[in-house]
């Protein structure tokens, strides 16, 4: 099939970008979306022009590096997958595809379609962990954790940190991402010691990074490639408000 691509090109963080139009020819429907871009890039490179820069790495939907906003939706038209798992059979011959980077003040564009998501790392650094040193931990089976709790924790922990939630949210809110981490540890017995501190510290950092606030539109949940649910946001609200109003703990 043949396609028309409108791709955001921007040299670096400090320059203004604009859309360029490319033709993608002889695209097989077995290609992944990124392989389609490889083909386009190959052609651009042969012309001696600068290929389109986009982030990608594992290409199996787990590293969270790929991040394209395709025809108005993060990771494109199919639900519960990342861009690298999106295949061209989801498009039709002659279609025009608009490809943009994630748009958020907290995610500045580095080049073309790649954005800087280090804000996510800083939020995790603020408290997204359980403080245990290596060694000296008790036997793994010493605390039984009900299967439902373990599964619930897993469902939150499965977040790949791609940022589609922020990209999808009309407010560029990072609540789903932060909620997932807070919820994972809030459910587990290991996470209790630092529970209140964690919620406060991570929300404070989230706000500092300039993400918007959650207005519960649910766009994040709908676009999340690994199906992180809105209940993580409810948990985050509960954890944070509980920590602030019912029993505040000093964050250190």
């Amino acid at each position: 099939m043949n396609l028309t691509l409108k791709v955001w090109r921007q040299k670096n963080e400090n320059t203004r970008g604009k859309f360029h139009t490319y033709e993608a020819k002889d695209i097989s429907e077995d290609m992944s979306f990124l392989e389609m871009l490889d083909v386009v890039n190959d052609e651009i490179t042969r012309k001696g022009e600068d290929p389109i820069y986009f982030d990608h790495d594992c290409r199996e939907g787990i590293c969270g590096m790929c991040s394209l906003y395709i025809n108005g939706r993060p990771h494109g038209p199919k639900e519960q997958i990342t861009t690298c798992q999106l295949h061209m059979r989801s498009f039709h011959d002659g279609q025009t595809i608009v490809i943009e980077p994630w748009r958020a003040a907290a995610f500045p564009v580095l080049k073309d379609l790649a954005v800087d998501r280090s804000a996510f790392d800083r939020i995790q650094q603020a408290g997204g962990y359980i403080s245990v040193n290596t060694g000296g931990t008790p036997d793994a089976n010493i605390i039984p954790i009900p299967k439902v709790k373990a599964d619930e924790a897993f469902n939150s922990a499965t977040c790949i940190g791609c940022g589609a939630c922020v990209a999808a949210c009309k407010n560029s809110s990072a609540m789903l991402f932060v909620g997932a981490k807070v919820a994972q540890f809030a459910v587990l017995p290991q996470g209790q010691a630092e529970r209140k501190e964690r919620a406060q510290a991570m929300v404070d950092q989230m706000d500092k990074e300039g993400f918007g606030s959650c207005t519960n539109t649910g766009a994040c949940e709908a676009e999340c490639p690994v199906g992180i649910s809105l209940s993580n946001i409810a948990t985050l609200n509960r954890e944070y408000l509980g920590a602030k109003i019912i029993k505040e703990v000093e964050v250190h």
Binding site: G72, R73, V98, A168, T217, G218, A222, E223
Partner: peptide, 9 residues
């Protein structure tokens, strides 16, 4: 430039 909010909310 292209926003399809109806798809997710």
């Amino acid at each position: 430039a292209s926003y399809n909010g109806a798809a997710n909310s």
